[in-house]
Amino acid sequence: MTSEQLFQIFLNGITLASVYFLVASGLTLIFGLMRVITMAHGTSYLLGGYFGFSVASATGNWYLAALVAAAIVGILGLIIHQVLIHKFQNDDLRVALITLGVAFIGTDLMAATYGGDAYQVPAPSNWLGTVVLPFAGSYSLQRLIIILISIIIGVALWLLISKTRYGAIVRAGVDDSQMTAATGVNTRVIFASIFLLGSALAGFAGVANGTLFTLLPGQDGTFLLYSLVVVIVGGMGSIPGAALGALLVGLVSQFGLYFAPTYATVFTFALMVIVLAVRPQGIMGKVRL
């Protein structure tokens, strides 16, 4: 392996990590606050991508497409939360199963609408082309832009949670939602807003991934699995944890693809099994199971 190849693979790993981070950050926010896992998160991702494709190819405006996709998927997430999940919030397994049922329905309806073809969200024309980087040689510009966007979103989320009053309420809710409710905070609104935000992030991730790669049926399941792996490895409920988890998973799968492509998938899941066996709460998770 030349050093240029090494940097290329490293950058590819980071690209993948930034997409995984976008999907997983929504999942980790929801889990952190409500202790529930939504198994329909992959469905939100793929649906966002498909909406993004439809809007971008109709209007030619990528930014509008990303915004619309995130908004619609966010609102759908909110509806699912209000109608299906809200009542059972204290029963994590039941919520996981209900949202899994939603995922079955979503997968089937998306397959009926978009079929088995591959779709790619058209990128803004000034994103095309490559830039020459030190050490790595030339690298795709749109990949670098997506990496940048996801870093910005990650930092914004971290600031939102750790520096704002809203974040303080969310963090208080994470620690003890009953006490928080007792202090007069409307936790239902907080829960709903986190669900909206988390789903919107997944929808946006679909647009980002659909721009770099293509959207295919079956990716809803794959991305759900990968985002679960990311949040488990990083530690559930932690934004920096999701970033770290995404980075590890992205790099392991890309270097795996180089050294032993056949077992690339095995490596990724094995990473999670090892982390869970050694540190069940994840690398940056709090000790509370």
Binding site: F31, R35, V36, I37, D92, L93, A96, L225, L228, V229, I232, M236, F269, M272, V273, L276, P280, L289
Partner: peptide, 11 residues
Amino acid sequence: AIYFLMITLAI
């Protein structure tokens, strides 16, 4: 709980 569900899924 949910961790067990996910680790068994991963396995």
